[in-house]
Amino acid sequence: MAKEDRVVGSADEMAKTSWERVNDKVHVWPYLTRLEFMCAIIITIFLVVWSIVIDAPLEEPANPSVTPNPSKAPWYFLGLQELLVYFDPWMAGVVLPTLIIVGLMAIPFIDVNPKGNGYYTFHERRFAIFTFLFGFLVLWVWMVVQGTFLRGPGWNFFMPWEYWDPHKVVALTNVDLPYMLGFRSYWSQAAAGTVMIVLWYATIPAYYIWRRERMKNVGLVRYLIKASLNMTMMGIVAKMVLRIGLNVKYVLVTPWFNI
């Protein structure tokens, strides 16, 4: 194997001392600049050919009195539009997007694992990679794909071979989870919903106490932020399962907001 072709993280590479690894350098000109130049040419050719072959879409002039069905957000926001099936707009459109951005920014500060800095590895940081890929591939990329190709008129679900029938009727038989569990009065339902939400997040301190030896190098504040973000992400999944599997509308119903 040529010297340039050594794989990062290979046994050969890792067998070297730290000093050797950091100081094994090549000139930027020409070794990097020629690559950047090739990359730029390939991207340019690709973009020019694409722009010659496929025209950008342009529909009828804007008309506020004619609403198309389905009305879809730009494709990269369809993951958020998909969340509207499971949550009210204040959650799906405001709170959860904010948490996504804040959560992404928090990653370097809540991941205290010193390993895997600057090379590809899975086994040295299983939890971090699993969590990120789950959020990125399942909750973001897959939702975008589903929102683009499988959501038709009325935001109803259509398989790829099905006709997008604007008159498709889907029975809305959703009920609130507390009602399903037998709570009938308004306030008992609100109390039951609160208890369920509290129980969901109570796993956070419980896990901390159970694994307090392990948590020493994480720290309490860091752990609380990390675990809250994680449980919220898994909470989205839980709500999706409840909605699709059991036709649950809300878990918590209050006079001010519903979750």
Partner: peptide
């Protein structure tokens, strides 16, 4: 750019 760069960093 720096004038020199670590060998692995030019790998696509």
């Amino acid at each position: 750019h720096p004038t020199k760069i670590r060998r692995h960093a030019i790998r696509i």
